[in-house]
Amino acid sequence: MPSSAGGYSLPRAYPPHLSGAGNYRCTDPQPVSGWLQISVVVAQPAVKRAVEVMDGLGAIAVSRESTAVKEFFDEARSKDHEWDEEKITGLFAADTDLSVVCGHLKTVLGHQTTPCVQALPDRDWELAGQEQFKPIHIRDNLWVCPSWCQPEYPDAINLMIDPGLAFGSGTHPTTCLCLEHLTRLNLNGSTVLDWGCGSGIQALAALRLGASKAIGVDIDPIALDTSRNNAERNGVGSRLRLMFPEQVPSDLLCDVLIANIFAHTLIDLAPTLEQHLSRRGTLMLSGLLKGQAERVLSAFGSRYTFKAEQRDEWVLLIAVSGV
């Protein structure tokens, strides 16, 4: 919805003191609560320039997302995503001079660019985020519960896991599929290897379900720190070892191996994962879409007979070594 001044797109609920023609600066002498969200859709190679403009003009945060209807999760991408077209969004203080920000964006990106501006009310974002996460019943007596919630069934197995930077809060279909299958296994006295452990949720569940020890492996130090903290919170810190892939002993064998990671990574890691699974051990592979399953299966060869469990478009592949 272009405005009468500068071609900026303003929502109908925009504050009156910011919507006058040619006047995009906050005129209220009192501090203004809330934020301004300014977005532009740009094609490569202008993405980095748009990010630099917003960052240079004082954006508190800048996010990037693809405008494509469908994304492909099976491609290894560089840290610079290089999507063909992206939506760049900057979060600014409410008293930001819109004419400066939008003017610079149009100068750098071209006058055909139409920034979209939205006013966001101030709120307790920590509380708002917490409200989105409630206890999740996985199966039988296994629950995943954020620390700010009181477990609904105190006598159940409650994994206290807070959503964070490391993957694995119990909400994603692949996480749920893996956790559900763990409840079906007899884990008493077993050794479990969680490759790509993220938050450590799979390893922690295995330990709470009877495994004697677990090993969590990840390339991300934040994931390892998060797993360590979650293990302490759940009372299993002494039974969980955490390490980077290069630290895994070559002779390490496990009874259950879980790898909930991308399909192309599973394919690349197939020889390594097979090396660490004991004879008649259980192999659990997830993080892949239904259309990627055949390629993952072919990477592990005829030594395994797999069965598949599916939720939405996501798949868990399960096999027993040597059977």
Rank of each mutant, 00 (worst) to 15 (best):
Arg64Cys: 13
Gln112Ala: 15
Val117Gln: 06
Leu105Gln: 05
Glu126Asp: 10
Thr114Trp: 05
Leu142Pro: 09
Pro115Ile: 04
Pro121Ser: 15
Ser66Val: 05
Asn141Arg: 10
Gln130Met: 13
Asp97Glu: 09
Gln118Met: 12
Gln112Glu: 11
Arg123Val: 14
Asn141His: 09
Ala156Val: 14
Glu86Arg: 02
Lys106His: 12
Arg123Thr: 15
Gly129Ser: 15
Arg64Met: 13
Val144Lys: 00
Lys70Asn: 07
Val62Met: 06
Leu98Trp: 03
Pro154Phe: 13
Glu152Gln: 11
Thr113Ala: 11
Met160Tyr: 00
Gly103Pro: 03
His81Glu: 10
Trp83Lys: 00
Leu98Ala: 02
Ala94Cys: 08
Phe73Asn: 08
Pro151Leu: 13
Ala93Pro: 01
Ala156Gly: 11
Pro121Gly: 12
Thr67Arg: 00
Lys106Ala: 14
Pro135Met: 09
Gly90Lys: 06
Val69Glu: 15
Lys79Gly: 11
Gly129Trp: 15
Pro163Trp: 12
Met160Leu: 10
Gly110Glu: 09
Leu165Glu: 08
Ala119Glu: 09
Gln112Ser: 14
Ser66Thr: 15
Ser63Glu: 11
Gln150Val: 15
Ile138Asp: 02
Ile138Arg: 01
Cys149Gly: 00
Arg139Asp: 14
Ile136His: 08
Asp84Met: 08
Asp95Leu: 02
Asn141Tyr: 02
Gln132Pro: 03
Gly110Lys: 12
Trp83Arg: 00
Leu159Lys: 03
Ala128Glu: 15
Thr113Val: 14
Glu152His: 04
Asp155Ser: 13
His111Ser: 10
Trp143Ala: 02
Gly56Gln: 04
Ile136Arg: 08
Val62Thr: 06
Thr113Asn: 08
Val62Ser: 06
Pro121Gln: 14
Gly110Pro: 11
Phe92Asn: 05
Asp124Ile: 07
Asp122Val: 03
Val62Tyr: 04
Trp83Thr: 01
Ala93Cys: 04
Ser63Ile: 07
Ala59Tyr: 10
Lys106Glu: 14
Phe133Trp: 15
Lys87Pro: 06
Gly129Ala: 13
Ile161Lys: 00
Arg77Pro: 00
Leu105Thr: 08
Gly56Asp: 06
Met160Ala: 02
Thr67Ser: 01
Val101Gly: 01
Ser63Ala: 12
Gly129Lys: 09
Gly56Pro: 05
Asp80Leu: 15
Asp122Ala: 15
Leu142Ala: 11
Gly58Ala: 00
Ser99Asp: 11
Ile88Glu: 10
Asp155Tyr: 11
Glu85Gln: 14
Thr114Met: 11
Ile157Lys: 01
